[in-house]
Simulated assay, not measured.
Amino acid sequence: MTDAELDAYFRRIGYSGGGAPTLETLQDLHRRHAESIPFENLNPLLGRPVRLDFASLQEKLVREGRGGYCYEQNLLFQHVLKSLGYRVTGLSAGVVWNRPPEEMTPRTHVLLQVDLEDGPWLADVGFGGQTLTGPIRLEADVEQETPHEPYRLVRCDESDEFELQAEIRGTWRPLYRFDLRPQRLVDYEVGNWYVSTHPSSGFVIGLMASRAPTGCRYTLFNNSLAVHPLGGESERRTLGTAVELREALTDVLGITLPNGPGMNPLLERIAAADPPPR
């Protein structure tokens, strides 16, 4: 990244600190990224490509005020961290969130290993409504605080995999499983093509958007908007019109919506559907 590109990213997330590759810088960038750049899957829903080259990531997530999903979010974050001098390795995971424990899932989630002087850390700014808002140490069986919920890593039985879990309302919930094999961009391109185009992919079927500002999380699934305050009861509201959906996406989630003839019909279709089950 050039200095101008890095400065544009810093403005996007409201960062004005130093650029030394320290834990403190990583924590601040991680939190501000999750607060400022929303998770969203509008491109797959609109039949538009999801490109992973740096120029496309910078244009969409930084200059256009859009968001993206894990491939876009974490690959952009990887470019930023490497530009600052961090040692970063891309990894992949199979998502087990809200799935039966015995179900086999493909490795279609991107996460990052960041090696600091005191050892490796896990960074992930792209897991949607339950994304990390701060890095955690890559160490098993230790409860670790973040700006939002506590997280922990556990070793999977008889394997070299870790499982990331979050404590949600007093219960530890599994999110995804991964190992430490480095991934190449070509590996990500294959997974990205699958999740953004396959007719059974959740990213093609339904609208998903989220953001994690200080003190709460906002999540939108189709026409159901939820506000999850930390330590409080969640509030949910069904958005019954395209106008309400547009306002939620722009004013609550912070997304600058893409131009084009397909946007209004998409919002009208989603608003008219039955709300998803809770």
Rank of each mutant, 00 (worst) to 15 (best):
S56D: 12
S56N: 13
L61T: 04
L61S: 03
V62H: 00
R63S: 14
G65Q: 06
G65R: 00
R66P: 02
G67L: 02
G67P: 01
C70P: 05
C70Q: 09
C70F: 03
Y71K: 10
Q73G: 09
N74K: 03
N74S: 07
L76Q: 07
L76A: 12
F77C: 03
Q78H: 11
Q78G: 06
Q78R: 15
H79V: 12
V80N: 13
S83D: 13
S83A: 15
Y86I: 03
T89F: 11
S92Y: 01
G94W: 09
V95P: 04
W97S: 04
N98V: 07
P101C: 00
E102N: 04
E103N: 05
T105Q: 14
H109C: 10
V110F: 15
V110D: 07
V110T: 14
L112F: 08
Q113S: 12
V114L: 06
D115V: 12
D115G: 03
L116C: 11
E117K: 09
D118A: 08
D118W: 10
D118E: 13
W121H: 12
A123Y: 05
D124Q: 04
D124T: 06
V125E: 05
G126F: 13
T131E: 02
L132Y: 07
G134I: 14
P135S: 02
P135G: 01
R137H: 05
L138T: 04
A140D: 12
Q144S: 04
E145N: 08
T146D: 07
T146C: 08
P147V: 07
P147C: 09
Y151F: 15
Y151C: 00
L153G: 03
V154M: 09
C156D: 14
E158T: 05
S159T: 15
S159F: 00
D160H: 10
D160N: 11
